[in-house]
Amino acid sequence: MQTRFESLGVYLPDQTVSTQDLVARMATKPVFNLEELTGIRYRRWRDESEDSYSLALTAARKCLTSSRYSAEDLDIIICSSITRFKDGMSFYLEPALSKGLKGELGLRPDALNFDITNACAGMLTGLFILNNMIKSGQVKTGMVVSGECITPISETALKEIREPVDKQFASLTVGDSGAAYILDGTMDDAEGIDMIDFMTMSEFAELCFGMPSTENSGVAMYTDAMAIHKETIKRLPDIMVHMMKKHGISPRDIDFIIPHQTSSRAIHTAMDLCSHHFEVSPEICISLDKFGNTSSTSHFVVLHDYIKQGKIKKGSNVLFIALASGIVVGFVLARIGEIGIHEKLIQ
């Protein structure tokens, strides 16, 4: 028995903000062309009534709408938001966001719930956890959900960036979103999660911090983007080659790669270095131009986008690559089946 993605729901707020608009609002302009460097033209911003919790709730409802399961069938819900904002901009530590979602969605009182945080690897860390819980027989079916109201760090960066090279520039790349998926078990070899492999290179755990600002109200993110890029680029090809050898995976087994969405230049540099070891190059999926970096939801926002476009379809082999503060490096190889998404059911 293996697990598979049974359903997927993504919610993106309507409001679109362009990179040009953001740069125009900055007192200190970057010395580089932000749009050209990142590949981000637009990102979505929540409206005033939305927060991390509501974004997660909307995505979870969309996911359930497309699923053959009802909320009462779910044995567990795991929420992996970094931002954890509820009731506006209150960063909730207790109760768990998953407790509220469990109640509002209508899960059984005996269904499990807990939150996890693992920066932008949150939803894939949820996959590591839920896959093991299903395979070990603890649960049969569960949901991993995340709502990321993360553009408040952009608002802080707009106020606080004073240097042409500043640790808050990465804060201008993010966009708000919600995403959820349902995972269950299957005996059908035609689909499923074939491989999960994670590690944390904690030597570099301090290269990115998200926390309340001390200069203004609100939250900020401080990223040493150059150091992260340098250290990960140096290591990623070896880690990827090792992972593929260990699990007996050939590049021919991969149709699409969904990397964490940081910047198009960084992604292409990393993937080019990795592909030197491969005889074929899978398609690299990037939706940065439309949605920016949506943090912990990014892989599922992209998966949803590519399914909607008809590119990723039933039978596609997709390699998800997590790269997150910590530094977390992770790989998930999935064969996509008849995954439900709320706009249409892919046949």
Partner: peptide, 23 residues
């Protein structure tokens, strides 16, 4: 400091010296 990112776990992992850089 109400740290939101990274998780606390890698910050502790680093100080415990648990395979901080396996490469």
């Amino acid at each position: 400091d109400n740290i939101m990112e990274p998780a606390i776990a890698p910050l502790v992992q680093k100080r415990l010296g648990l395979n901080n850089d396996p490469c």
